[in-house]
């Protein structure tokens, strides 16, 4: 069980959150001018690192804010936690 330290609500169970995946994935700013290649990379392709992973979580049952955390995908050890920029 992950205990996620929400900046607003304190440490809460993972069951209160929704996982939002890799925080490094950025939606192309101008979809009309983006190449198919870049759009597919955004939609489907991931680094999937074994080790520290910067990822998004949404605190559904709490403050309802998106947060970005660093988590080791091998040990579940947590690193930096901060509010995601909107």
């Amino acid at each position: 069980m992950l205990l996620i330290p929400c900046p607003f609500c304190g440490a809460r169970d993972e069951t209160e959150f929704v996982y939002g995946g890799d925080a490094g994935v950025e939606r192309p700013r101008n979809p009309e001018t983006t190449t198919d290649e870049a759009w597919t990379d955004y939609l489907c392709f991931r680094d999937n690192p074994q080790g520290m992973h910067r990822e998004l979580w949404f605190h559904r049952d709490g403050c309802q804010r998106w947060i970005t955390i660093e988590r080791d995908t091998r040990t579940h050890e947590l690193g930096a936690v901060r509010l995601s920029r909107s």
């Binding site: 992950l2 169970d13 995946g21 990822e55 995908t73 091998r74 040990t75």
Partner: peptide
């Protein structure tokens, strides 16, 4: 529901 290689599932 999240990336992991820990091979241990959540009690939830």
């Amino acid at each position: 529901g999240y990336n992991s290689w820990s091979q241990r599932g959540s009690p939830a």
